[in-house]
Amino acid sequence: MTEPRPPEGEGPAPAATSVVIAFRLNGRRVETLAPVRLTAAELLRDQLGLTGTKVSCGIQVCGACTVLVDGAPASSCCLLAVDLDGTEVVTVEGLAQGRELHPVQEAFAAANALQCGYCTPGFVMMTVALLAADPRPDRAAVREWLDGNLCRCTGYAPIETAVILAAERTAP
C-alpha cells in the first residue's frame, strides 16, 4: 500500500460529537444542539416532548416510530437526529389541523383500526406517505406498502379497511 497522499483541498474535517441543527417540525422552526449519538426518536420524544412517535423494535422493522422527513417515511429510531438538519419533519402530532383530524386519522378511528394503539402513529404516518404517492392504492398495494409495519393486536384487516376508506375520502 502506498503512503496516503494529502487530499485535494484541506485536511481531514474535524469530528464533532454535538451539532447545532435547525429544521421545521410540524410547521414550526426548531433549532437545537443535538449529540450525534441521539436518534431522531429520542430528540422528538425526550427533548421536544412529542411522545406520539413510539419506539418498539429499535431496528426499523416494526414502523412504530415512523415520521415523515421531507415527505418520505423514515424510522426515527435508526435515524440520527443530526440528519434532520435542514429538513421538514412531520410527526403524528402534526397531522390534525386544529380540531380537524387528518382524513387518515379519521379513517383509522372510524374503522376501529387500532387496539392498544402503540403501532397506530406509525401506521398513520405510513398511510399518509402512501396516499401522497398513490392516492388510490388497491388492496395489494396497501398490503405491500404496510408489510414493513407490525401490529400485534388487530390482525391487520381493519387497518386495510381504514387505508382504503381514507383513500376513498381523499382521492381527487
Binding site: 406520539g52 403524528v92 402530532e93 383530524l101 379519521e106 378511528a109 397506530t120
Partner: peptide, 13 residues
C-alpha cells in the same frame, strides 16, 4: 368509535 380512538390516532395517548 372506540373511546380511545382520538387519543390513539393523534399520538396523545
Amino acid at each position: 368509535p372506540r373511546r380511545d380512538a382520538w387519543d390513539k390516532v393523534t399520538g396523545r395517548a
